[in-house]
Deep mutational scan, measured.
Amino acid sequence: TFYNFIMGFQNDNTPFGILAEHVSEDKAFPRLEERHQVIRAYVMSNYTDHQLIETTNRAISLYMANL
């Protein structure tokens, strides 16, 4: 899942690491979701930090390219 992918960046001092920290603390994050459209919609609806949203979009693109 995307959640498992992004958790691989925990403790990294990178934008993906920052995203992983936010996702791990977000109890409502769709952890079992595999459809990138649902993940993107969730982030757009629940996150207000523009940098975090952009990082999510980049992470989703990388995740999709590696499926």
Results as ranks from 00 to 15, higher is better:
T1I: 05
T1E: 03
T1M: 05
T1F: 05
T1L: 06
F2G: 00
F2C: 04
F2N: 00
F2P: 00
F2D: 01
F2W: 05
F2R: 02
Y3P: 00
Y3K: 00
Y3G: 00
Y3A: 01
Y3C: 02
Y3W: 07
Y3T: 01
N4T: 12
N4F: 08
N4K: 11
N4C: 11
N4Q: 12
F5V: 01
F5L: 01
F5G: 00
F5R: 01
F5E: 00
I6D: 00
I6H: 01
I6G: 01
I6N: 00
I6K: 00
M7G: 01
M7E: 02
M7A: 04
M7I: 08
M7N: 03
M7S: 04
M7P: 01
G8A: 12
G8L: 12
G8E: 11
G8H: 10
G8R: 12
G8F: 08
G8Q: 15
G8N: 11
F9G: 00
F9S: 01
F9N: 01
F9A: 01
F9W: 05
F9H: 05
Q10P: 05
Q10C: 12
Q10E: 08
N11Y: 12
N11W: 08
N11R: 08
D12I: 07
D12Y: 10
D12W: 07
D12H: 12
D12A: 11
N13Q: 11
N13S: 09
N13W: 06
N13G: 14
N13M: 10
N13L: 09
T14R: 02
T14M: 03
T14C: 06
T14F: 02
P15I: 08
P15V: 11
P15A: 12
P15L: 11
P15K: 06
P15C: 10
F16I: 04
G17T: 04
G17M: 05
G17Y: 03
G17P: 02
G17Q: 06
I18G: 06
I18D: 09
I18S: 09
I18P: 03
L19P: 01
L19S: 01
L19I: 04
L19Q: 02
L19A: 02
A20Q: 04
A20I: 04
A20Y: 05
A20L: 04
A20E: 02
E21S: 14
E21L: 15
E21A: 14
E21P: 02
E21T: 15
E21G: 12
E21Q: 15
H22C: 08
H22S: 06
H22G: 02
H22V: 14
V23F: 12
V23N: 02
V23A: 03
V23W: 03
V23M: 11
V23I: 15
S24I: 09
S24W: 09
S24T: 08
S24N: 12
S24D: 07
S24V: 07
S24H: 13
S24Y: 13
S24Q: 13
E25P: 04
E25N: 15
D26H: 06
D26P: 03
D26N: 02
D26K: 02
D26Q: 05
D26S: 02
K27S: 11
K27G: 09
K27A: 12
K27R: 11
A28V: 06
A28N: 15
A28G: 13
A28H: 15
A28Q: 13
F29W: 05
F29M: 04
P30K: 02
P30V: 05
P30I: 04
P30Q: 02
P30D: 04
R31N: 04
R31W: 06
R31L: 05
R31C: 06
R31M: 07
R31P: 02
L32W: 13
L32P: 04
L32E: 14
E33W: 03
E33V: 05
E33Q: 05
E33P: 03
E34N: 15
E34V: 15
E34T: 15
R35Q: 10
R35N: 15
R35T: 07
R35P: 04
R35S: 14
H36G: 15
H36C: 12
H36E: 13
Q37W: 15
Q37T: 12
Q37R: 07
Q37Y: 13
Q37N: 12
Q37A: 11
Q37D: 15
Q37K: 08
Q37P: 06
V38A: 11
V38W: 08
V38G: 05
V38N: 07
V38S: 08
V38H: 07
I39P: 00
I39R: 00
I39L: 06
I39A: 00
I39S: 00
I39Y: 02
R40N: 06
R40C: 10
A41H: 11
A41C: 10
A41I: 09
A41N: 11
A41E: 14
A41L: 11
A41Q: 12
A41P: 00
Y42A: 02
Y42N: 01
Y42I: 03
Y42P: 00
Y42Q: 00
Y42T: 02
Y42L: 01
V43N: 00
V43D: 02
V43P: 01
V43S: 02
V43G: 01
V43L: 07
V43R: 01
M44G: 06
M44A: 11
M44P: 00
M44I: 11
M44K: 10
S45R: 10
S45M: 14
S45E: 14
N46V: 07
N46Y: 08
N46E: 07
N46S: 09
Y47T: 05
Y47F: 08
Y47R: 01
Y47D: 01
T48N: 10
T48S: 11
T48M: 10
D49Q: 06
D49C: 06
D49S: 08
D49L: 05
D49A: 06
H50M: 13
H50Q: 14
H50I: 15
H50L: 14
Q51M: 12
Q51T: 12
Q51P: 05
Q51S: 13
Q51H: 12
Q51V: 13
L52A: 03
L52M: 07
L52P: 01
L52C: 05
I53S: 04
I53L: 10
E54C: 07
E54H: 09
E54W: 06
T55Q: 06
T55D: 04
T55A: 11
T55N: 05
T55W: 09
T56V: 15
T56Q: 02
T56S: 10
T56K: 01
T56R: 02
N57I: 15
N57L: 15
N57H: 12
R58N: 10
R58V: 13
A59L: 09
A59N: 04
A59T: 02
A59H: 04
A59I: 08
A59V: 07
A59F: 04
I60C: 06
S61Q: 15
S61V: 13
S61Y: 11
S61M: 13
S61H: 12
L62R: 06
L62V: 10
Y63H: 09
Y63T: 01
Y63L: 06
Y63N: 01
Y63D: 00
M64P: 01
M64A: 09
M64H: 10
M64F: 08
A65G: 10
A65I: 10
A65H: 11
A65E: 12
A65S: 11
N66E: 13
N66M: 15
N66P: 06
N66A: 14
N66Y: 15
L67H: 12
L67E: 09
L67A: 12
L67C: 10
L67N: 12
